[in-house]
Amino acid sequence: MKMIWVALGIIVVISLSATGLYIYSAGLQRDLQRELVELEQAAEAENWAQVQQASARLKKAWKQADATWSPVMDRRDVDRVDEAVARVAHLSAHRQKDDLLLEVSVARRVVTRLMQKESISFHSLF
């Protein structure tokens, strides 16, 4: 009987941890998306000072997300986001508007796809 409770305990703990992690990861994704949108808007307005600030905030948000996602998500997907953020930061520093806007849209897409894989849907399950 003890083993039954242990088994049920494992299932409950894993399910709750997974739900908690999903909610936390969704928050991290929203933070990343918000920073990318702000950076995109600043780049479109060619407000480079604001672009620099948004880029710094993006790097900070990514550092936090990376620490959470790397141990639990497919590392190839996490690496893709890492590369996209690195390119965005580099292009922000060099004030290359067109390339920056392209990279921001790619980064937004990669972040969205990463979380789509973790969400409960027919697509992600099968």
Binding site: M3, I4, V6, A7, I14, R75
Partner: peptide, 20 residues
């Protein structure tokens, strides 16, 4: 490229399911 936790958790779950 696959985090180990993605294997440990299913194995723990399988063990739990098997017991149940």
């Amino acid at each position: 490229g696959i985090p180990l936790i993605n294997s440990i958790i299913p194995i723990a779950l399988l063990l739990s399911f098997q017991i149940l």
